[in-house]
Amino acid sequence: MADKLKFALAVLLLAAGLAGYYLLSGQAMIFRVLCVLAGVAACAAVGWFTEPGRRLGAFGGEAITEAKKVVWPTRKETTQTTLVVFAFVVVMALFLWLVDAVVGKLIAAILGWQQ
């Protein structure tokens, strides 16, 4: 029940930040944006102390840990892979252009159109 109240409070804080943006329409844009950012920060701070917020924080920490375990490709590997992909795209484009031209000529011949 406490988490539901905290979540409701977080939503109200976010709504208050957004409402402040519109209520301060006569003020400078920086104050309006700061009001929204303050609402988002307050919402995140309250949300952090809910059970879903703690789970989200744990998930983020685990994601960072897993990202550190990744073996990233070297510059040479990245360049070679990019060139292979580029070459494949060029070959495929030429192949599809050729197929399109042949099918177009066949259809024109069947229907008796002149090109």
Rank of each mutant, 00 (worst) to 15 (best):
L98A: 12
A101T: 14
G61K: 06
E66C: 10
L56V: 06
F59N: 05
F95P: 01
F49Q: 12
V103Y: 09
F31R: 14
V33Y: 06
T50Q: 05
A38E: 01
V33P: 01
T65L: 15
V103C: 08
A42M: 05
L98G: 04
I107D: 03
K76P: 00
F49N: 09
T82Q: 07
W97P: 00
A41Q: 15
S25W: 06
L106W: 14
V89N: 12
T82E: 09
L94N: 12
K76Y: 06
L34I: 13
K69T: 06
F31V: 10
A38F: 05
Q80A: 15
A44T: 11
R32Q: 14
V102T: 04
L94A: 05
V99F: 15
A93F: 11
V33A: 09
G61I: 01
V71E: 05
T81Y: 05
V102I: 10
F49L: 05
T65V: 12
R32I: 07
L83F: 14
A44Q: 09
V40S: 00
L24S: 11
V36S: 01
V84R: 08
M29N: 06
E77C: 03
T50K: 11
R55A: 13
G26D: 07
R55M: 12
R54F: 11
E66W: 04
V36Q: 03
A108F: 10
K76G: 10
G57D: 10
V91W: 06
K68T: 07
I64G: 09
T65G: 14
G104D: 10
L24Q: 03
R75L: 06
A45H: 07
V46R: 00
A63G: 06
V89H: 04
T65R: 13
I107E: 09
W48E: 15
W48K: 14
M29S: 12
G26L: 04
R75P: 00
G57R: 14
K68G: 09
V36I: 15
R55N: 14
F88V: 13
T79C: 10
D100G: 15
A67H: 04
L24Y: 01
T82I: 09
V91D: 02
L37N: 01
V99S: 03
L56I: 12
V46L: 03
T65N: 12
G47A: 15
C35V: 13
A44R: 08
P52I: 08
A63R: 07
V84F: 09
S25Y: 13
V71Q: 13
L23P: 00
T78Q: 07
L96G: 09
F31E: 14
F95T: 07
V33C: 03
Q27V: 12
V70S: 04
E77H: 02
T74A: 10
V91F: 13
C35L: 15
